Simulated assay, not measured.
Amino acid sequence: MKKVRIGIIGVGNMGTGHATYLQKGDINGAVLTALLDNNQERAELLKEKVSSDVQVFTDEDAFFESGIVDAVLIATPHYEHSHLAIKAFEHGLHVLCEKPAGVYTKQVRKMNEAAEKSDKVFSMMYNQRTNPLYQKLRDLIQTGDLGEIRRINWLITNWYRSQSYYDSGGWRATWAGEGGGVLINQSPHQLDLWQWLTGMMPTRMRAFCHFGKYRDIEVEDDVTAYAEYENGATAVFITTTGEAPGTNRLEISGDRGKVVVENGELNFWRLRVPEPEFNRNFKGGFGAPECWKVEVPIEGKETAHAGITQNFVDAILHGTRLLTPGEEGIKGLTLSNAMQLSTWLDDWVELPIDEELYYKYLQGKIANSTEKKEVKSVSLDVDGTY
């Protein structure tokens, strides 16, 4: 295979962005050959905008049976991700899927099983993993420079969204349309990084989700969660779409120091000796380990979405290791499902979660969803239509 022929499914905001850099030739070894969007009006406009080498489809089966794609990039509403990925694998196609992996872990597990059975390349569009700052932080943790993790705090409240944003699409902020709010739409990147940076998943979680606290919506727009780990570490995750100005601050403490990521900077305070060693040997009254603020070199640039797509193509053509294996998408989703389930049960939730119980509660929410029938302020670039 000289070039990977890519077909994009869903040409809203994200799909349009992916199509743009692919058509410009920014991805070595890849060529855009097809687009699938089930909105007839949008499809007709796409035919006028894309090159004659790109075929536009409105019929899903015709797209998959066309024989003109080797891989698909899925950029549709969340509920469709699993179904489309599984269908792609069944047609022998490689899959790159936008975040989140899906709405509930039960469907994502089926997607992972289909991927394993197909033996095709499967990747997730977790573009924040290309950020050199987070890559360096992960390196500090994985190599032991921070020591054993003791505490994680992530305050991510700069996801401000107005009521007009939610009113711009009938599917937005509804259980039937999105399957969640800030946890499923805005925060999946942080939920993925949370587990990717540390390499750990919590053993149990207690969360408090507020539904429609700041906006006239039915899903969560304010969340505070507390998690515990097998090694005794704890974590607090706070997010909302209703505060301005917001904050994005990640603090991770280990027994060898502390790292803070905020305002695009990484600050590392390193203990001269590990805290347990100091505590064991110190005989005075008041005292604390000697601490150095270390300047950590951050090299490289964030390649974002195009970087993930290039990595995906390289994995297909050259066997390059994936930065964002698709099978890992279930981990961040498990965290968000656990937060919602804990709130619905008003109790602790053990991880891995009871997938059938979560699915039961979600179906109840969907059955009573007030998904708006009238879509206000429609534009051709509104995401969520495919």
Rank of each mutant, 00 (worst) to 15 (best):
Y226E: 02
A227Y: 02
E228C: 11
E228S: 12
Y229D: 05
Y229K: 01
Y229I: 06
E230K: 10
E230F: 08
A233P: 04
A233R: 05
T234N: 07
T234W: 10
A235Y: 00
A235L: 07
V236Y: 11
V236K: 06
F237W: 00
F237T: 03
F237S: 02
I238Q: 00
I238W: 00
T240S: 14
T240N: 04
T240W: 01
T241R: 01
T241S: 12
E243S: 09
E243M: 12
E243H: 13
A244D: 11
P245D: 12
P245N: 13
G246F: 09
L250M: 14
L250G: 06
L250I: 13
E251Q: 12
I252W: 00
S253D: 10
S253E: 08
G254W: 01
G254I: 02
G257Q: 03
G257C: 03
G257H: 03
G257M: 08
V259I: 13
V259R: 00
V259P: 06
V260P: 01
E262Y: 00
G264I: 10
G264F: 10
G264Q: 11
G264V: 06
G264D: 09
L266S: 05
N267H: 15
N267W: 14
F268D: 00
W269S: 03
W269I: 03
R270N: 08
V273P: 07
V273M: 08
V273H: 03
V273E: 09
P274R: 07
P274Q: 08
E275H: 08
E275Q: 13
E275C: 11
P276Y: 02
P276A: 13
P276M: 01
E277S: 04
E277K: 04
E277R: 01
E277A: 10
E277V: 10
F278C: 02
F278L: 01
N279Y: 09
R280L: 15
R280T: 13
R280C: 14
R280G: 14
N281E: 12
N281H: 14
F282T: 07
F282K: 02
K283I: 10
G284N: 03
G284E: 05
F286R: 11
G287A: 09
A288V: 14
P289F: 05
P289R: 05
C291P: 00
C291M: 14
K293W: 15
K293F: 15
K293G: 02
V294I: 15
E295S: 12
V296D: 04
P297M: 11
P297G: 03
P297Y: 11
P297V: 13
I298V: 15
I298H: 00
E299W: 12
E299H: 05
G300Y: 10
G300D: 03
G300Q: 01
K301P: 06
K301I: 14
